[in-house]
């Protein structure tokens, strides 16, 4: 459960691509044990923010610390203390679940003596014990997501970053992933920063949410506080619309999707 210790803090964090600001002067604070959800349409800058916090992408301006390490000056220490499940599927389909975890175990220098035990436990915890020796290419989407979470959590990081963790999953697989995430927080006390564009997901998982729009964090708070602030009977959708400008949303969305696909092709 949340404590007072700050685990993620950004100060005027900014990322520009050419003349386009994907993340603009963003201030964010996440406390230990929290599940914090970033909500925003495609192209809002969520992935860009996560890539900066996971040290994949150098910021253009501003600073940020994760697990009390600076993301630029102490990038390697940040990496040792975080787990990351990217928007793309990051497990290797040509390896078995066990082999994927073995690679992570070695990269994170988990001592050889306990490697096997940790991998077995991780598979069991994610309900993948029977699938451990099968090629990941044969897994369902939900199984791959669970394997990725297992890989990201193997070294017991303080912070787990999840980028659209249930995108493309069927409702049953989504709920399974949700339950696993809630379990992880409860049992390991891990702090989670996740992105989503689904309100029900934010509501089911997040202690606090922040709405991102055009690279800025427009509002943060608990789902309840944000709804109450809007008035009686308001939903998160209403909160979202009020903070992103519902008018321009539809057209903005199509452009953003287009842009997103193009940039995925060009930059991954």
């Amino acid at each position: 459960m949340p404590t007072n210790q700050i685990v993620i803090q950004t100060r005027e964090l900014t990322k520009v691509f050419g003349s386009f600001s994907a993340v603009q002067s963003l201030d964010l604070m996440v406390r230990s044990g929290e599940i914090f959800g970033l909500i925003g349409t495609n192209g809002a800058g969520k992935s860009t923010l996560i890539k900066m916090l996971t040290t994949l992408l150098p910021p253009s301006a501003g600073t940020a610390s994760v697990a009390s390490f600076d993301i630029v000056e102490q990038a390697s220490s940040v990496r040792a203390h975080i787990g990351y499940v990217p928007q793309l599927l990051s497990s290797d389909g040509n390896l078995t679940g066990y082999e994927n975890l073995l690679m992570s175990a070695r990269l994170y220098l988990i001592p050889r003596a306990i490697r096997k035990k940790k991998i077995t436990e991780a598979l069991e915890r994610m309900d993948l014990a029977d699938a451990g020796n099968r090629l990941v290419g044969q897994y369902s989407g939900g199984m791959i997501r669970r394997l990725e979470i297992a890989q990201a959590m193997l070294h017991e990081p303080a912070v787990l970053f999840l980028d659209e963790p249930t995108i493309g999953l069927d409702p049953v697989a989504r709920h399974t992933v949700w339950n696993h995430l809630l379990d992880l927080r409860k049992q390991e006390g891990v702090t989670i920063l996740m992105t989503t564009h689904q309100m029900d997901e934010a509501e089911a998982l997040c202690d606090r949410i922040g709405i991102m729009h055009q690279g800025r964090l427009t509002v943060t708070g608990t789902p309840k506080a944000l709804k109450d602030h809007m008035g009686k009977g308001a939903t998160l959708d209403d909160v979202f619309a009020a903070n992103t400008g519902s008018d321009s949303e539809q057209s903005g969305r199509i452009n953003a999707v287009k842009q997103e696909r193009e940039s995925a092709r060009a930059h991954g």
């Binding site: 996971t54 040290t55 994949l56 390697s76 220490s77 990496r79 040792a80 975080i82 990351y84 990217p86 928007q87 793309l88 599927l89 990051s90 497990s91 290797d92 389909g93 690679m103 992570s104 990269l107 994170y108 220098l109 990725e148 890989q151 991954g268």
Partner: peptide, 16 residues
């Protein structure tokens, strides 16, 4: 591998 996302997993690890 980068297009798939597999490379990201290696790159966020503390390995030099």
């Amino acid at each position: 591998e980068r297009d798939l996302g597999v490379l990201h997993r290696q790159m966020v690890s503390p390995a030099p």
